[in-house]
């Protein structure tokens, strides 16, 4: 019983084990697997990232005002859903220009609320793709 008193007394002067998160921010490592980012001017529209993604989180959909690029022959635009992605970075390994057109940063993904239409908006984009 004396050992437990001694241990409780020395624990008064140690640093606490808790990190109080929203007040003090936590630094992430440089190699942390975060959001996927896209450079629009360097893309050559080969569509390899769309075939390599397991859940299908990248879609190229025909729209009325496509971005102006001489390789974009069919009028496509890039769409990405951070709530469907599993952050495995298969798309970065399949891209022929991995540092300029598509790369993985170490930022945290954003949190969605009800008005963002995370699920219903994606079903409408998939219907446009099939037509």
């Amino acid at each position: 019983m004396l050992t437990s008193f001694f241990k409780a007394f020395t624990n008064l002067f140690k640093k606490p084990q808790t990190i109080d998160y929203p007040v003090t921010s936590i630094e992430k490592d440089k190699e942390y697997r975060g959001l996927i980012e896209y450079g629009e001017s360097e893309c050559i529209y080969c569509l390899k990232c769309e075939k390599a993604c397991p859940p299908g989180a990248i879609l190229f959909v025909p729209v009325e005002n496509p971005p102006k690029n001489e390789k974009n022959k069919k009028g496509l635009k890039y769409h990405y859903n951070p709530h469907l992605c599993i952050y495995c970075s298969e798309c970065v390994r399949a891209c022929p220009k991995p540092e300029e057109a598509l790369w993985q940063s170490n930022k945290k993904p954003p949190i969605g609320i009800k008005d963002d239409k995370v699920n219903d908006g994606w079903f409408e984009l998939e219907k446009l793709k099939k037509v």
């Binding site: 998160y21 929203p22 951070p82 709530h83 945290k108 949190i111 969605g112 609320i113 009800k114 963002d116």
Partner: peptide, 21 residues
């Protein structure tokens, strides 16, 4: 649903951010 938290698996920092919202 009111709040959507992404990630596979979501890290505890994202869960605390979602709880504050």
């Amino acid at each position: 649903v009111d709040v959507y938290v992404p990630g596979c698996a979501s890290s505890p920092e994202l869960i605390i951010d979602g709880l504050v919202k």
